Simulated scan of single mutants.
Amino acid sequence: MAHGDITHIDIPVGDVQAASQFYGTLFGWQIAEIPGFESYPMWSAPNGISGGGLAPRSEGFTAPRSYVEVDSIDAVLARVAELGGEVRAPRTPIDDTSWWASFVDPDGNEIGLVEGTTGGGAA
């Protein structure tokens, strides 16, 4: 994927098993845990392109979050502040070759960022 592409969508859930059954049945998504991401099943849409994860719901994560592929999280987060947004989560490792972060835009929308490549899954 290229800089600016939406690459992943996390859906916060309270019961991973129930959510996997619900979304798999409703949309025909293929949902599976992959090594290194246990308790965080990845979903893949029938088009083989769209995908994301069913992430545990938490106090700060209650709405779906789209992730945008970027060349440099650090550069994008610097621009976010310049443009009136706010960093929500700083650059954080996913694995040895990929990182994520998130920001809130001036309208209050949280958007995730991803840099690098993960070892597998729908991301």
Rank of each mutant, 00 (worst) to 15 (best):
M1F: 02
M1N: 08
A2Y: 10
H3M: 09
G4S: 01
G4F: 00
G4Y: 01
G4K: 07
G4P: 06
D5L: 04
I6V: 14
I6G: 02
H8G: 07
H8Y: 13
I9C: 05
V13C: 11
G14N: 13
V16N: 09
A18W: 06
S20F: 03
S20L: 05
S20G: 14
Y23G: 00
L26H: 01
F27E: 01
I31F: 04
A32Q: 13
I34R: 08
P35N: 12
F37P: 05
F37N: 08
E38D: 12
Y40V: 10
P41A: 13
P41G: 09
P41Y: 02
P41W: 00
M42F: 11
W43V: 01
W43G: 01
S44L: 15
S44H: 10
A45G: 03
P46F: 00
N47C: 01
G48P: 08
G48I: 04
G48Y: 01
I49W: 06
S50P: 06
G52H: 00
G52D: 01
G53I: 10
L54N: 02
L54F: 03
P56R: 08
P56V: 02
P56E: 07
R57I: 14
S58G: 14
E59H: 13
E59V: 14
G60Q: 15
F61W: 04
A63V: 15
P64R: 05
P64W: 03
R65H: 14
S66L: 10
Y67R: 02
V68C: 04
I73S: 00
I73W: 01
D74M: 00
D74L: 04
A75G: 04
L77A: 08
V80N: 05
V80K: 09
A81D: 10
L83N: 10
L83Y: 09
G84L: 07
G85M: 10
V87F: 07
R88F: 13
R88L: 14
A89I: 14
P90E: 13
R91H: 00
T92K: 02
P93V: 00
I94H: 03
D95C: 04
D95I: 02
D95Y: 05
T97G: 11
W99M: 07
S102L: 06
F103T: 09
V104I: 15
D105N: 12
D105M: 10
D105R: 07
P106G: 05
D107M: 08
E110L: 03
E110R: 09
G112Y: 02
V114I: 15
V114N: 07
E115M: 04
E115R: 03
G119L: 14
G120F: 12
G120E: 11
G120H: 11
A122Y: 07
A122G: 14
A123E: 12
